[in-house]
């Protein structure tokens, strides 16, 4: 057993750890959610990560984005994420794509990925990514945060869950995000991802909602 993964056992079996090492995951967005997603995926040992973000770090990211550091201000988030992966776990591969997701490039980004993880920060990009996952038949692990609130879900091909979540002209009241909210959301997303990748039973069609201000946690059927 590779000592790097010793503490994965027995929560995961050795066979499951080996399965993870053969999987490829796409993470779109390397900011608040994405930073935590990428770090956790690298540590647990998912074999190949493609990390996408066209943005660079700026001072307003420092309150919450795990990968943001003062010396990295102005640096590509995707490149910083890939560099972080190579320092955390050089035994896996990380491909940095430092462009924003668009309708045009979405299909190419999904190529050869087993699961897509949502590290996005806006509704329009989520619609594009979710739509492309539905077309490609790839599970999409949705996550979104605002202030003290996080929500996560698995969207399977055919359920159009993300499209149903946002009404036309949906309004986000503010852009506030606290440091712990994306960390919680990303933890839920990665746990769901690991279960999907290892073939464990996992309930789909549910939205998990966390209000950390009022300590309210809901599991909402979206069928």
């Amino acid at each position: 057993m590779n000592p790097r993964y010793e503490r994965n056992i027995p929560a995961l079996s050795e066979a499951e750890c080996e399965i993870l090492q053969r999987k490829q995951v796409l993470v779109v967005g390397c900011g608040g959610l994405g930073g935590h997603l990428i770090d956790m995926l690298a540590r647990i040992g998912v074999g190949a990560l493609r990390v996408v973000d066209g943005d660079v770090f700026e001072p307003s990211n420092l309150n919450r984005q795990l990968l943001s550091e003062v010396p990295l201000l102005g640096v590509s988030k995707a490149r910083a994420a890939a560099a972080r992966v190579s320092r955390v776990n050089p035994e896996i591969s990380a491909e940095a794509v430092d462009t924003f997701l668009t309708e045009k490039n979405a299909r190419g980004l999904l190529l050869s990925c087993d699961v897509v993880l949502d590290g996005l920060d806006n509704i329009e990009s989520r619609r594009i990514l979710a739509e492309e996952c539905q077309r490609a038949g790839i599970p999409y692990i949705y996550g979104a945060v605002n202030g003290w609130v996080a929500q996560a879900a698995i969207s399977m091909p055919g359920d159009h869950l993300v499209q149903r979540l946002y009404p036309e002209g949906a309004v986000l009241k503010n852009k506030s995000v606290l440091s712990f909210t994306p960390a919680l959301c990303a933890s839920m997303q990665v746990a769901l991802c690991v279960k999907l990748l290892t073939g464990r039973p996992v309930e789909t069609g549910k939205l998990y909602y966390f209000d950390l201000l009022n300590q309210e946690f809901e599991s909402i059927p979206m069928a």
């Binding site: 967005g29 900011g31 608040g32 959610l33 994405g34 949502d118 590290g119 996005l120 920060d121 806006n122 509704i123 989520r126 996550g143 979104a144 945060v145 605002n146 609130v149 996080a150 929500q151 979540l165 946002y166 009404p167 949906a170 309004v171 986000l172 009241k173 852009k175 506030s176 995000v177 994306p182 909602y209």
Partner: peptide
């Protein structure tokens, strides 16, 4: 009723 949550 839940409001839209859409940041990251």
């Amino acid at each position: 009723l839940f409001p839209p949550v859409g940041g990251g």
